[in-house]
Design a binder for these strands. Structure first.
Lengths: 110, 110
DNA sequence: CGTTTATTTAACCGATTGGTTGACGATTGA
DNA sequence: TCAATCGTCAACCAATCGGTTAAATAAACG
């Protein structure tokens, strides 16, 4: 069973996809415009966008023949919350912390 | 060129490796003990540990014939910082966590 | 010493990844 | 209407991934 977290971290592990997210931070963009600065085919970028979309990191909306991509930081926040468990919390109360995270994430996803 | 961030996110994208990190949050562990709860070979776990180690998420130290694994949250923090750029995520709310703990304790005592 | 324990390495496997090209459907504009 | 534009899909490819088993190395035990 592939969890949301799997998809998010896998999506983030590719530098092209991280670059796309950074671009979208400035503004929503059409697929063709997202592809422009990269030295790879439009089809490849289209695949990257699908991966970002399935991970919940972006949302895509088609208007006319143009598909607009916008950042959707919900899933990213989810991953961020998971990661902050390390570094901030020392050995104590790990089980409790995990339960706490689950509750937080459940609330966010609604 | 594979950056540190690539390695960290790729490492985190596997649920087995995230589970290992969670275990190491509680305590340092030998490779064999890390492998124990998983339904896969020791060799497979050894590979996962190598990936975590290359990503800088754990450190391994050999004492005698035993190799100890400990969490090394440096790289994780690095990735966490990268993610903060997207959306102004409040860091995990420690106060909320403490309230959660209190509630749990109250429930247990009933 | 020989044996058991701890861990890695090597060879292998099928599935997935990140890219390509070319064809395709849908929308727009002259 | 017809050509250009936007984007996806299908087929293909080499490389990597996550797992296996078996053998190899190294240290500790009796």
């Amino acid at each position: 069973m592939e969890t949301r977290l799997d998809l998010v971290f896998a999506a983030l592990s590719d530098p092209t996809r991280r670059a796309i997210l950074t671009m979208l931070l400035e503004d929503d963009m059409a697929v063709t415009d997202v592809a422009e600065p990269f030295e790879m085919s439009l089809a490849a970028i289209s695949k990257h966008l699908t991966i970002l979309s399935r991970a919940g990191l972006i949302a895509q909306e088609k208007r006319g023949r143009v598909k607009w991509c916008k950042l959707d930081p919900g899933a990213l926040r989810e991953a961020s919350v998971w990661m902050q468990g390390f570094g901030q919390f020392e050995p104590v109360n790990l089980d409790a912390f995990e339960r706490f995270l689950e509750e937080e994430l459940r609330d966010d996803s609604l």
